[in-house]
Design a protein around this nucleic acid. Structure first.
Lengths: 344, 344
DNA sequence: ATAAATAACACAATCGGTTGCAATTTTAGG
DNA sequence: CCTAAAATTGCAACCGATTGTGTTATTTAT
């Protein structure tokens, strides 16, 4: 029953006594093919179980209908949401996804970029590794005018679009909220300041302090890898300080939670002794007690927007430079971890 | 500087005054090409920035060096760990990944299978959607002898390999642990019993009960979609029961946690009133208080094993039928949520 | 020195579809 | 019925790499 050979347009052509050209055009709904012929072609194709050969087509038109994705890690809530969003949008438009993770290493990132390039992806979606300092490894793409979109962890570049939230504003809001709750000694846990996300969050943090005439202290900014373990480590250090901080704003939820758990273990009361705010609205924020105040923004949506935009680019190269940056909405979600005043 | 045209073996051939055949063979380190010529070819290829054309090669050898992955959801901790593991192994072996999610729908699953088939992936890694009842949509793959590996949510099939843990044993261990802690009225929260994972966990649960002469009660098994919200819903229902259960074994952590949070809110003490055990060792298990007892098994490892195995298949079709099922290790991690006795 | 063996490389067909242009058929107008 | 215009369809080259088979140059053996 099952013929092991692949059905090609030549098989259809032979059977119908027409040329492969006509079959090819018929399948593409080309206007110069008569309706009658088209119908015959479609019917037979259906009956024979014809499937277009992706490679032959890609080889010929230099298009793959595939998007490349490179992210620091696949297994974080945020990133997997983004990927899910991308998958959703791409799938809708008939695009496939080629995915790689850089494991937060710019070297691996460069290698993946190379692989994607070799695979001739039609476009690239990237969130940068924490130690990526410049974009030279994307030169191949820029040179060939293959669209590249950076999301979340971005870096400005004239030939590409950035999709992100207003990290400065979000951090400002979070910090300001802590201040309004009465915090005056607010620490900031973050990652190496190479990336926009951390740079801008730091900026927002400073800005809020400044607005309330709170002096910025260098030693109140702690640089870590933002893992849960790192959060626990930081807690130890903090607990040794002469004067404890009364608020902590972490650049991600995971780290905030690591820190909270360690502190609770040492009898620190949250938010009475120290109030907490995180970033990302990871599901764990609603599991920890007290629930963690955080910045919410949808990874799923970011993925969808990024993918749709990229596909538009791919389909119409002309509109390249019209858009440069897309800012998505984000919001502060206040929960018990930071509510010193007005608690029920 | 940047030549927009792609460099091909013909360019190299022309420049070196040799044939494309020789270039092709040289690049493949074919023995019949002299070392001297090879060196010249490699050097020029390097200098010209030659990159093999994936499509031309795939078209010619009917191999794509790409694996397909279909999972129910991308954004769960477990699944994204699996994907990370697969990515790691595949990348090591020079394979690319094509990823799609079924969103727990067998219809979307079938569509993705089709796409993967059209994309001519060399092999397929699948974790089934919750409502997938049979494997007919994989027939194309089976017929053409393209290896398919099922992991975690599997279904036996003569032409494919299953990779999973011993769900029955794990569930048995968890349930038994609850019993040993003094629980006698143990409920089981799970998903529709279509999938092996839930069927086997139920089996293990029953088995443990049986061993301790505890009568199995149909109404103690609750079928949900295992989301956190579902867990909270179930909590409400349970709290209305005449006699409360004294232990709950959930088929995943998320659901267990939703249930725990809702119960805590109603003043139920955990584990004193009700002990809890979950499944998966999701990070939230160590955030919730008390920390959740659970079954730990590594998604990352499962992904690696699955990918490596699949690649072995792809490379050597002959060894197809030697392995049928691979069982990975899993372990019960006892935490405070279930420790009624011997607590410090 | 010459036949035989071996090493090194090239020809040409092939994978499956696409497309510019030419060829053929159909339809329309006179 | 004849011819120009319009509608259909086919020819053949091409996308880039691979490979069985044939050819030429170089060694080795006699």
């Amino acid at each position: 029953m099952a013929n092991d050979r692949e059905v090609t347009i030549y098989d259809i052509a032979r059977e119908l006594n027409i040329s492969a050209t006509t079959v090819s055009r018929g399948l593409q709904d080309h206007p110069t093919i008569s309706k009658k012929t088209k119908k015959k072609i479609f019917d037979l194709a259906e009956r024979l179980g014809y499937r277009s050969n992706h490679f032959a087509r890609s080889l010929r038109n230099q298009k793959t209908n595939t998007l490349g994705i490179i992210v620091p890690r696949l297994n974080s809530h945020f990133m997997s949401s983004v990927i899910a969003g991308i998958e959703n949008a791409a799938n809708e438009q008939g695009f496939s996804l080629l995915i790689a993770q850089s494991s937060e290493s710019s070297v691996k990132e460069a290698a993946s970029v190379r692989t994607m390039f070799d695979s001739r992806v039609d476009g690239l979606l990237v969130s940068l590794a924490v130690d990526t300092a410049e974009l030279s490894h994307f030169e191949h793409f820029f040179k060939k005018n293959i669209p590249v979109i950076f999301f979340d962890r971005v870096m400005p570049h004239e030939n590409s679009v950035n999709i992100l939230i207003d990290n400065r504003q979000a951090a400002y809001n979070a910090t300001r909220h802590l201040i309004e709750q009465g915090c005056r000694r607010i620490m900031h846990l973050t990652a190496p300041i190479l990336q926009n996300v951390y740079k801008d969050r730091l900026k927002g943090y400073k800005e809020a302090l400044g607005e309330y005439k709170i002096k910025f202290r260098e030693d109140y900014v702690v640089i870590t890898n933002l893992s849960q373990e790192a959060g626990a480590e930081v807690a130890k250090t903090i607990l040794k300080m002469k004067t404890l901080p009364d608020g902590i704003f972490a650049a991600n939820d995971t780290c905030a939670i690591g820190c909270m758990l360690a502190m609770k273990e040492q009898g620190i009361r949250i938010p009475e002794d120290i109030a907490f705010a995180g970033f990302n609205n990871d599901p764990v924020t609603q599991v920890i007690e007290p629930h963690l105040t955080t910045i919410n923004y949808s990874g799923y949506e970011m993925g969808q927007v990024a993918a749709r935009h990229l596909i538009d680019h791919v389909r119409d190269v002309s509109f390249v430079s019209s858009t440069n940056t897309i800012i998505l909405r984000s919001e502060l979600i206040v929960r018990a971890s930071s509510l010193k005043k007005g608690r029920k």
